[in-house]
C-alpha cells in the first residue's frame, strides 16, 4: 500500500471567488458637458471597459458602477458588475448638476455591494470612487462630502476628485477628499485618465495578499494637474 503515489487532481480542490475591486464612477453629464467633453467621456469609458475586460485578472476582479448627474437627473447606468467588452450604456449631456445626490447614490450602491460580498464570502479590496465634474453642484453636497470624507479618513474608500476644464469647482471637489487634493484633467484627456485607472485597477487585481499597491503618481501626471 505504501508504494502507491498520492493521486489528486483539480476536482479535489475548492473554488473561492476572486477578490473584487469595486470602482464607482460618479460622472457629471450636465448640459455644459455637451459636445466634445461628453464624446470624449464616452470614448474614455469605452476604453476602460475594453482594457479591464482584456486583462485576465482584472476582468474577474474589477466591478464597475456608473452613476451620472445631469441628463435625466441622477441616473444609475450600471450597478457594480464585472466589465463588459464595451459599455452597455451611452452617456448624454443635459440638465443641471445634482452632484450631492449622485454621490450619495454611489455610496449607497457601494454599501449594498459590500454587504453582498460579506454575505457570500467574497473578499474585496478598498473601494474606489471617481468623481468628475466640469462645473458647480446645483444641490447641497454637504451630506455626501461628509460621508466620503469620513470613509476616506478611515481608509475605507479611495477617492479621486477630478475637475474637467477651467470652470470646474475644485474647492467643492476638495470637500470630498481630505487626503488628496483634486486634480484637473489636462484638456479632455479622458482616454489617458481611464487608461491610468484601468492600469491601476489591474495592479490591485494582480497584487499579492498583504501587499499595499502604491498609487501610480507618475502616471497621474499624464492626465492631471494640481
Amino acid at each position: 500500500m505504501t508504494d502507491r503515489s498520492l493521486e489528486l487532481d483539480d476536482t479535489a480542490l475548492v473554488d473561492n471567488p476572486t477578490a473584487r475591486v469595486p470602482v464607482a464612477l460618479c460622472l457629471d453629464t450636465s448640459g455644459s458637458m455637451d459636445g466634445d467633453p461628453i464624446a470624449e467621456l464616452n470614448e474614455g469609458i469605452h476604453h476602460l471597459h475594453a482594457s479591464i475586460y482584456g486583462d485576465e485578472l482584472a476582468r474577474y476582479a474589477a466591478e464597475i458602477a456608473v452613476v451620472t448627474f445631469g441628463s435625466g437627473g441622477v441616473q444609475t447606468h450600471r450597478d457594480f458588475a464585472q466589465a463588459t467588452p464595451a459599455p452597455e450604456y451611452h452617456l448624454d449631456a443635459g440638465g443641471l448638476t445634482p452632484m450631492g445626490e449622485a454621490v450619495n447614490r454611489a455610496l449607497d450602491l457601494l454599501d449594498a455591494r459590500k454587504e453582498a460580498y460579506k454575505a457570500t464570502g467574497v473578499d474585496y479590496y478598498q473601494p474606489w470612487l471617481v468623481l468628475m465634474t466640469d462645473g458647480h453642484p446645483t444641490d447641497d453636497v454637504g451630506e455626501a462630502a461628509g460621508r466620503v470624507s469620513a470613509l476616506a479618513q478611515a481608509r475605507r474608500l479611495t477617492v479621486f476628485p477630478i475637475g474637467i476644464g477651467e470652470d470646474a469647482d475644485l474647492d467643492t471637489l476638495a470637500r470630498f477628499s481630505p487626503k488628496r487634493p483634486p486634480l484637473r484633467l489636462r484638456g479632455l484627456a479622458f482616454d489617458r485618465f481611464f487608461e491610468w485607472l484601468s492600469r491601476s485597477v489591474q495592479q490591485v487585481s494582480a497584487s499579492l495578499p498583504g501587499e499595499e499597491v502604491p498609487l501610480d503618481v507618475d502616471g497621474l501626471r499624464g492626465w492631471g494637474t494640481l
Binding site: L6, L13, V14, D15
Partner: peptide, 23 residues
C-alpha cells in the same frame, strides 16, 4: 484551494492526503 471561505469547509484533497500519508 484547500479551504472554502464561504462556508468554512475543506477540500477533499486534504482528506485524501491525510489518508494516503497515514497508510
Amino acid at each position: 484551494g484547500l479551504y472554502r471561505r464561504r462556508d468554512g469547509t475543506l477540500a477533499p484533497a486534504l482528506g485524501r492526503l491525510w489518508a494516503w500519508a497515514r497508510q
